[in-house]
Nucleic acid binder design. Structure first.
Lengths: 291, 291
DNA sequence: GGTGATGTGTTCAATAATGCACAGGCGTGG
DNA sequence: CCACGCCTGTGCATTATTGAACACATCACC
């Protein structure tokens, strides 16, 4: 029972009762309809229709086919409307991935998006390994650093992530304010444990601050942020957040080299879908307002 | 959602996970598979698959299609086996039509056939109008007289229906045995009411027997037969039945001109089906045994 | 790091499906 | 009774679909 189109043709013949009527419904020539029916019958070795000059009448086998095909036609049209509907609606799963380091910064945005679009289920994947768009593991990825130049990926600038070097008031009260970079050896810093970290501000810290001064280290950016807020030491905090927090003191003037660009990356196949577009535009609007 | 073949193709891609795998299953070139999927996606304006170099992964829409198409595939294969099975089995409806006059003679044969093939439902249609094979109103028709020469009809000789002129013993006891055709005016006959009846023995009766002698007339052959058996008069009874009945007396020697040939007529489209063949061979064997 | 196996995607020639034109049957309504 | 409309069915030209070949990417295995 291969060639579903012939079943579809035979179905219309059974429904209409005439070859010509079926041909008109299907938008093909009536000769095509005759050939489809002939082919199907010879393949099944059963007559589906009784032919006479005024039309086709179904046999029992034809009746059976009519029932099954009618159900199929119904199923397919429902499927089509579901798929098209889903294409237009912002619902279903929406998988976002980013480096774990961006988790604390991304999460509030995603939560706000989810509140605006209650039909979507947001899955925010962060982890050791990179979740790959080209395998369909995520709809949207937030990447940092240089422009990711993968084929099939749509990349657009998202946000300039600016970091500042802050310390909590309680730390300053206990250890005093560093007089300058030369004094950093006498202070306590909060930094990343992984020396491979490519983030420019961590790289700067590794270059400038003596290793033994980085006394609190972790792998999770959120954890490091909390450590700074708790007064564990001097560390990097998102610039606007740090300056807005009255309990934080900016230890070092902001350097442009600390900045890293965030990119919104989507797979070409998914980029045009309304769901993805909804999140992209939401995110871009959110960061624009923030600044 | 026209073009069901593309759905079928997309279904195999979703099932296999690769274009090449689907192409092999479908027995087509993988380029064809790609084109089908592309066409379907652009028509739906939705990506069904996430493409990457190692295969295709279904999106949500693709998952939906996979489920529906899997059910369809199942339905169709079941349909195919039902249709093929029905083609081979002797079951379902079997519609037989004949002149009403043959009803009493045909019925016992059909009953016997139905007992041998309990899966068939026999519908024996007799009526004023002729049920037409070319409209699919019946599988088999029993026709009497000259060879029906319709196109698309398969005609084969069935039986030589021989009639004899009989009277019941009780009638002979009451009215005596006619001395010969000249004496028929003094007797009572059972005959058909319709002067148009083409049956040769009724025609003979109209020619030989004075009209006023045909004192019991009816339209139903079965009724006329019963009338003869009840002693209402002299009438035609099927030859072998009349001679087998000890209560019947053969009034006139059998004449070949009374005979009429019965034909089995089937439509070309249905003639080869096992169900029809089963009845045809049953009927032919039954009348051969009877003689 | 290199190599073979596997899979996608695109071009062009071959093939199969389609549409067209016409013939013929059947029924209906002047 | 004939003309007309509607239907099926068939040969032929056209179009669209398919298949073969090739280029390229990826991954597994050595």
């Amino acid at each position: 029972m291969d060639n579903w189109d012939e079943i579809k043709t035979a179905y219309q013949v059974a429904r209409m009762g005439t070859v010509s009527g079926a041909a008109e419904v299907l938008g093909v020539h009536h000769a095509t309809v005759i050939r489809h029916v002939d082919a199907l019958e010879s393949r099944l070795a059963v007559k589906l229709f009784q032919r006479h000059a005024r039309g086709y009448k179904t046999t029992e086998a034809g009746e059976d086919l009519l029932r099954v095909a009618a159900a199929t036609d119904d199923q397919f049209s429902q499927l089509a409307s579901r798929i098209k509907g889903r294409g237009e609606a912002v619902s279903g799963e929406l998988v976002v991935t980013s480096l774990m380091e961006l988790s604390s910064w991304m999460t509030p945005l995603l939560v706000a998006f989810q509140k605006k679009n209650p039909d979507v289920t947001v899955r925010f994947l962060t982890g050791e390994r990179l979740f790959r768009l080209e395998y369909g593991e995520a709809h949207i990825a937030i990447r940092a650093g240089q422009v990711p130049e993968q084929p099939d990926n749509v990349v657009q600038p998202f946000h300039m992530l600016q970091m500042g070097l802050f310390a909590h008031k309680s730390y300053i009260a206990a250890h005093g304010m560093p007089s300058g970079p030369d004094d950093y050896g006498n202070h306590r810093f909060v930094g990343h444990d992984d020396a491979q970290m490519r983030a420019p501000f961590f790289k700067w810290m590794r270059d400038i601050v003596p290793a033994q001064a980085i006394s609190f280290r972790g792998l999770d950016a959120g954890g490091l942020r909390v450590a700074v807020l708790e007064g564990a030491g001097i560390g990097f905090i998102e610039l606007t957040e740090g300056r807005a927090d009255p309990d934080l003191v900016e230890v070092h003037p902001h350097l442009p080299e600390w900045d890293s660009t965030l990119w919104l990356v989507t797979h070409v196949d998914l980029h045009r879908t309304p769901k993805v577009q909804a999140l992209l535009s939401f995110l871009k609007k959110a960061v624009k307002k923030e600044m």
